[in-house]
Amino acid sequence: MEIEGIRILAAAIMLSCAGVSTAIGFAMLGGKFLEGAARQPEMVPVLQTKLFIIAGLLDAFSAIAAVMGLLLIFT
């Protein structure tokens, strides 16, 4: 296989891994948040701020992987 094809393949693996990991992460995060909110509705404002912080942390590594993959394709 020539080098261009390998590059696209590597980018595809990076992008799909980033997508799958962030999907699983957000599913667990959102599910646990709903669980917690259902058990203790009065905690929702506190949990919500923390949810957003963790969403930001969670998003980071998949976003970095996605950027690396897209840069592999376009530069």
Partner: peptide, 16 residues
């Protein structure tokens, strides 16, 4: 490093 790459990665992904 993680602070900087987190911001950079997210913003570049959105811009892309």
């Amino acid at each position: 490093i993680s602070l900087a790459l987190r911001l950079y990665g997210n913003m570049l992904a959105g811009e892309l």
